[in-house]
């Protein structure tokens, strides 16, 4: 299920070593709809910060990896039932999720969430406003708890469209996601106010898969140590460097 299509990026690096243990091929699950973290490029392949990061991590851990896309809604159930081996989809590390799956150490700094509003509406009081968010995200629960009027949309695209149409006053989403949208559209602006929710983004793994977690953790540490992770963060503008 949801073993979707898309680019079959088979990395032929260190194939010999990779077949030595349990995971002959590691399948990486992503959403493919959350630029700059992960998206589909013009050729229809998974691209973005996490694509480059994942490929590099697999190379360092000497694993053969393959990319799979899956709807956001069912991304965790499909991981635990074994349809892919890791989630690398801009998923913030939260206590709720951590009860069900395991996370590697975070590979981005905690990214603030910001509010996207129509240009000229920067004086908005978010506490009494109508705020759009994607269903089942940390932002949606945050707005619900804050007490503002929450409008939930199935995809981030629709929530932005709602602000443009005047249906919602603001969108609450990851700053890295909103920044390029504001840049490209003069009718939109960001509020000064930011919310610190979530503990950075990590790779999600099955709790029983300690071996893969150890390998990925080691690979992330090595990328943090030699500065290559910072270079990627800078290239894709996904928040602060380590």
């Amino acid at each position: 299920m949801n073993k979707l299509i898309l680019s079959t990026a088979l990395l032929a690096i260190g194939a010999g070593a990779a077949f030595a243990d349990g995971h002959s091929v590691v399948r990486l699950g992503t959403e493919g709809a959350y630029p700059p973290f992960n998206f589909l490029n013009d050729a229809g392949e998974v691209d973005g910060f996490e694509r480059e990061l994942g490929d590099e991590l697999c190379a360092r851990a000497e694993l053969t990896c393959e990319w799979v896309t899956n709807e956001w809604d069912s991304i965790i159930p499909n991981l635990v039932s074994g349809n892919y081996d890791a989630i690398i989809a801009g998923m913030s590390i939260t206590a709720e999720r951590d009860e069900v799956i395991d996370f590697t150490q975070n590979y981005t700094q905690p990214d603030p969430s910001s509010y996207l509003v129509a240009a000229g509406n920067e004086g908005l009081n978010v506490e009494t406003a109508v705020i759009a968010a994607q269903t089942n995200t940390i932002q949606a629960s945050f707005v619900a708890e804050m007490g503002a009027t929450l409008l939930e949309f199935a995809s981030p695209e629709e929530s932005v469209a709602a602000v443009k149409a005047g249906e919602a006053d603001a969108v609450l989403a990851d700053d890295s996601f909103l920044a390029p949208i504001v840049e490209a559209d003069a009718e939109l602006a960001k509020l000064e106010r930011e919310e610190l929710i979530g503990g950075g983004i990590g790779m999600g793994l099955r709790e029983s898969d300690g071996e893969l977690k150890a390998k990925m953790d080691a690979a992330i540490s090595s990328m943090k140590a030699d500065g290559s992770l910072n270079a990627l963060i800078e290239k894709w503008e996904v928040g602060a460097k380590f």
């Binding site: 709809a33 630029p35 700059p36 998206f39 490029n41 695209e157 390029p180 949208i181």
Partner: peptide
């Protein structure tokens, strides 16, 4: 969906 110039030609 809106195609942002940063991510597409």
């Amino acid at each position: 969906g809106t195609a942002n110039p940063r991510f597409t030609d």
